[in-house]
Design a protein around this nucleic acid. Structure first.
Lengths: 146, 146
DNA sequence: GTTGCTGCAAATCCTTTGCAAGGTT
DNA sequence: AACCTTGCAAAGGATTTGCAGCAAC
């Protein structure tokens, strides 16, 4: 389950940050987004808030664990609402930006086993899976059929 | 095994691109680098070549499969010489940028198995492991001891 | 009343692009 | 000779920062 706007606001407050109007607006916009979104999209959703504040608030939300920052295949940054309190990874549809979170114990285990093969101490990892989601796949099939 | 400068040049030629002086210089600089490097570093290594050409050549090298582009935890792009012809992943030391390539059939298998869990067709994936390499680990221990 | 937060605009950083001149085949 | 490449400088896009004013505690 992902946080709603109110819960995100609370998470920010718990870190000792103030609850301000602009932050509320950004957080609500984030809460209403489904799938992946860019900082720029949020900035457009909330035109009354300065871009800088949008970026600053997104950073707080990451710090609070309410959103995850991930990367498209070309490296473009994308945000998505986080699964609360769970380590997880993301499957991103490269066509519509829909994001599906998943947990994969197999992957975690495999990475842990890597410690034998890689020299050094593993401090983190990034796993992202790129997909064409079923809806986009169907759309593509339809249009190629004519 | 990774390509040396000459082999990279050849790989570029095989794609039908011309063998020019600036390209040779960039390719040699890349060939001499160990571990991960940024475009900016290469540009500094080869000051006689314009930045634009450095970026253009790095793109060719990616196209030729001679270098891989990967991302640090903060999303900053990094390049590294590619293992020839093999699908692989990278373990990056976040302190010294040393890069170790590894293959992990377990991870590949785990990702393939994901197809059941994620809705849609998997088109690609990105796996990066962040480490503190043994050398940096030792250095940290030394300095914390006094 | 302190101190943190905001918006704005400017600054940065990284990368790409337009274009005329020059190099490669 | 044809056309691919280059360098420069400018453009571009994304994100950060300096700072004076305002808001939250």
């Amino acid at each position: 389950m992902t946080m709603n706007g109110a819960e995100m606001m609370e998470a920010i407050a718990e870190l000792g940050y103030r609850m301000t109007g602009p932050r509320r607006l950004v957080v609500e916009a984030v809460g209403e987004r489904r799938g992946g979104f860019s900082a720029e999209q949020i900035a457009r959703d909330v035109p009354s808030v300065g871009r800088a504040t949008v970026y600053r608030t997104l950073r707080l939300l990451q710090e609070a664990g309410a959103v995850c920052k991930l990367a498209l295949p070309d490296g473009a940054p994308m945000y998505t609402a986080a699964q609360v309190g769970r380590h997880h990874h993301h499957a991103v549809c490269v066509h519509c930006n829909r994001v599906e979170a998943f947990r994969a114990s197999t992957i975690e285990r495999a990475i842990r086993e890597l410690s034998m093969d890689v020299p050094g101490r593993i401090t983190g990892h990034r796993v992202e899976v790129y997909v064409t989601c079923s809806a986009c796949d169907r759309a593509a099939a339809r249009s190629s059929r004519g």
